[in-house]
Amino acid sequence: MTTPAGTPRRPATLSDVARLAGVSVATASKSLNGRQQVRAETRARVLSAAEQLSFSPNVLARHLLSGRSGTIGLVTHDLEGRFSIPVLMGAEDAAGTGKTSVLLCDARGDALREQYHVQALLGRRVDGLMIVGARPDPRAPLGELPVPVVYAYAPSDDPADMSVVTDNVLGGRLVAEHLLACGRTRIAVVTGDATYGAAHDRVAGVRAVLDDAGVGLTGEPLYGSWSEEWGRAAAALVLAQHPDVDAIVSGSDHIARGVLDHLRETGRRVPEDVAVTGHDNWEILALNARPQLTSVDMDLEEVGRRAAALLFDAIEGRVRSGTEVVPCRLVPRASTGPRADGGGGHRSPPGQDVPSVSG
C-alpha cells in the first residue's frame, strides 16, 4: 500500500481489506454487510482491517451485493402536499441520513396514474413502496407486488396489508374535553364533506364526550365543503338557529377561519362569547388567524416515521399486517378559553341583534 513520494494514495478496496484480514473477498463483503454466516471473530478481524485502511465501501456496490437499491418509493394523491409533505419528512427521518433515499411521485388522485408511477418505481428497483392518500378513508389495495407496501393516512381496506392512520375520533374527543374544561356547554359542530369518514369520526368523538358529560350537541352537525366560505355560511346558520351557542367545533382549519370571520363580522368576541376550534393544525392558517386558532395536530410526521419503520421492517423480512393508529394532540391557542361571563347563557354585543339567515 506504499506509494512513491508525491503520488496520491489510491483509496483502499475490498480486496485490500480481505488481504489484510486474511479472508476471501466474499467473506470480507459478508462481514461488512452484517451477514449472519460469518463468525464473530472473523467479522471483528475484517472490521479492524477496514478501519486500519480507512476503507469506505461504495454505496452502489454495497446495494448491489445486498440485492437492494437503497431507495423506497412514495406515491401521494395529495395535490397540495398539505398531508404528504409532513408524511414524507417523517419517512425521511426514519430512513436516516444517507442510508435510504425516498423517490416521490404525485398520482393526482388518479388510479391509472398511480399504477403508472408504481410500475415506474418498480422499474427503478425500489425496495418498498409507501402510498399516501389524499383523504383519510379506506382505499382499494394495489394487489400483489414484488416489494412490501405500506399505506399511510388512507388505509388499505385489506386487513392483511400494513397501514398507518391518524386518530380522528380522538381528535373530536380532545376538542370536546377542552371546551368543557373551559366551561362551554352550548357546543355546535361545523364540519366538511359528509362523504368523508373522517368528518363523521371527528363528530363521533365530540358527541361521545358531550353525551358522557350530560351536555349533548347543540343542534345537529352541519356538513359542507372543507372551505372558509362554508365556515362563514355555517356559522351564520348556527347563530341563527342557536343564538346562545358558546363554542363551535370546526372540522378543519379552513372551516374555522370562515367561522372566525363571521363571528368577527357580527360582533361576537372570540373566545369571550364563542370559542372556536379547528382541525389539522396547519400553521399557515392557525397562526395567522385572528385570534390564533386552537387546533388538533394529527402528527403526520409521526405517521410517516411509523409507516417507514414498518416498511423497513418488511424489507428485512419482518412483515406485519393491520392498521396502526397514531394519536393526535390538541394545540390550545387564543381562540379558546373561559367565557367572559363565566358561562351560562349568551350575551349579545351591546346594540347588536343576532343576525337572521334565510333558507
Rank of each mutant, 00 (worst) to 15 (best):
N281G: 10
T195K: 12
D261S: 14
A40F: 07
L65P: 04
R290T: 14
A188Q: 04
G224C: 12
Q52F: 02
D110V: 05
G205D: 00
A26N: 04
R113T: 13
N281L: 14
D161E: 11
A236C: 01
G128A: 02
G96S: 08
P221F: 04
A120T: 15
A91L: 08
G143K: 01
G304P: 09
D353N: 03
E177L: 02
D261L: 14
R68Y: 03
R135Y: 05
I72H: 09
G192P: 04
T42D: 10
E272Q: 15
E177S: 09
R269D: 15
D93Y: 08
A28F: 00
A340R: 14
E51Q: 15
D93V: 00
A61G: 08
A204S: 09
V303R: 04
E324W: 06
A235R: 13
W230C: 05
V274I: 15
V59Q: 11
P148G: 02
D299K: 08
P243Y: 08
R184L: 10
E114D: 11
E41G: 03
T218M: 14
R68L: 10
H262Q: 15
T336Q: 04
P350V: 12
R125H: 10
F83Q: 06
T71G: 12
G278I: 08
A44V: 04
S31Q: 01
M130S: 07
V147N: 07
R305I: 02
S29I: 00
A176F: 05
V164A: 03
G317I: 03
V238R: 07
A28H: 00
G172V: 01
S54W: 12
R10C: 02
R113F: 03
T100S: 09
G342C: 01
T277G: 14
A154V: 01
A307E: 09
R290D: 15
E283G: 11
A120K: 04
T294D: 06
H63C: 08
D313H: 03
V25K: 12
R333K: 12
L145V: 00
L217K: 10
A50K: 05
R257W: 07
L180W: 04
D280L: 07
R347G: 06
L210P: 05
E272M: 09
G81L: 09
G73N: 13
S227H: 07
V325P: 04
T7W: 09
T3I: 03
V259N: 11
D16Q: 11
S225Q: 13
E324M: 10
R108C: 13
P221C: 11
T100I: 07
H77W: 09
S24C: 05
G133K: 01
S225A: 15
T2W: 06
A26K: 07
N33A: 01
T195L: 11
V245F: 10
G34Q: 00
D313F: 03
G81D: 13
V276S: 14
D106C: 08
T3M: 11
Q52W: 07
R207M: 00
S29M: 01
Q352N: 00
R318F: 03
S15L: 14
T323W: 08
V147K: 12
A40P: 06
D297A: 12
S163N: 08
G267W: 09
A26Q: 05
L330S: 00
A181T: 01
F83K: 06
P57G: 04
D137V: 00
L103F: 11
T97K: 12
H77N: 15
A308P: 02
D212S: 11
A95W: 01
I187C: 04
T97I: 04
E272N: 10
P148A: 00
F55E: 12
S24H: 08
